[in-house]
């Protein structure tokens, strides 16, 4: 127990140090003494940082980690010009608040299910951003978006905007690759392995299953599907891709809110 007031002085020393730090760091930065020059937000948020921590959004932004998740989006396979989604319904089942609605496509003639969603809705006013849909999707067809700038005016009919339909949800796989590079890389490897396996299997019994192998490669990853997947009906009669909708899935993937 020291003199009365020493405790307060000690505490004030801490605040004084914080105060000086805010200038010392900037000075160091200006004189370029620190050597390595990271972008300012990164530098301010590193565990070694001292002094100012403010990130001046919207002028500068913290880099988002790849795992970051906000609302989900559907991946559109630009190579095959097709949805990756097969409407197997697993995402709708694992969704904790049940915010995913899927209408499965039916073949107009045979009435059998076709592995493609006819309608796909995500109610973002219910979605809890948990990431289960992306985690449990066996086809890598639904992913968590990084775009968090989603504010709306009521004049824009919030429910029409916030309940997103298939056209609004669909984004190209190039966008997915740009925000999830590691995940995308893993997908490509998986796909290559799958193809190789398919090829080997196809060669082994080329005659009997030639047609089937072609159908299988149209939906990569279908081999790992759950029994519920209507992969059997993957015939040539595929409906048109979602571009027919009035809102095309633009390449930048910016579901702009404005």
């Amino acid at each position: 127990m020291g003199l009365l007031g020493t405790g307060i002085l000690k505490g004030l020393g801490v605040t004084l140090r914080h105060f000086i730090d805010t200038y010392a760091e900037d000075l160091k930065y200006i004189l370029n003494k620190s050597g390595v020059q990271q972008p300012r937000p990164l530098r301010r948020q590193s565990p070694k940082a001292r002094g100012l921590v403010t990130v001046e959004y919207p002028r500068e932004r913290l880099p988002l980690p790849e795992n970051f998740r906000y609302v989900p989006f559907l991946v559109y396979d630009t190579e095959k010009q097709d949805d990756k989604c097969t409407s197997c319904g697993i995402c709708a089942k694992v969704c904790p608040p049940q915010c995913i609605w899927i209408v499965r496509t039916e073949d107009p003639v045979t009435k059998r299910p076709v592995p493609q969603p006819k309608e796909f809705y995500i109610d973002t006013t219910i979605c809890m951003n948990c990431g289960y849909c992306a985690e449990f999707c066996p086809f890598d067809a639904i992913k968590m978006d990084h775009d968090y700038e989603l504010s709306y005016y009521p004049h824009q009919e919030p429910h029409a905007r916030l309940v997103q339909d298939k056209a609004e949800l669909t984004k190209p796989d190039t966008y997915h690759a740009s925000i999830h590079p590691t995940d995308w890389h893993r997908e490509l490897e998986d796909r290559a392995a799958e193809e190789a396996k398919k090829k080997a299997a196809a060669e082994a019994k080329a005659k009997a299953d030639a047609a089937k192998a072609a159908g299988g490669s149209a939906a990569p990853g279908a081999a790992g599907a759950k029994p519920a997947t209507p992969a059997a009906a993957a015939t040539t009669s595929k409906p048109a891709p979602p571009k027919a909708e009035d809102k095309p899935a633009d390449a930048a993937g910016e579901a702009s809110d404005q």
């Binding site: 409407s87 319904g89 709708a92 089942k93 969704c95 049940q98 995913i100 609605w101 899927i102 209408v103 499965r104 299910p113 309608e119 809705y121 109610d123 429910h159 309940v163 339909d165």
Partner: peptide, 10 residues
Amino acid sequence: SRWPGGHHQL
């Protein structure tokens, strides 16, 4: 109601 005939309904 969510799948396979999941027509969205509030």
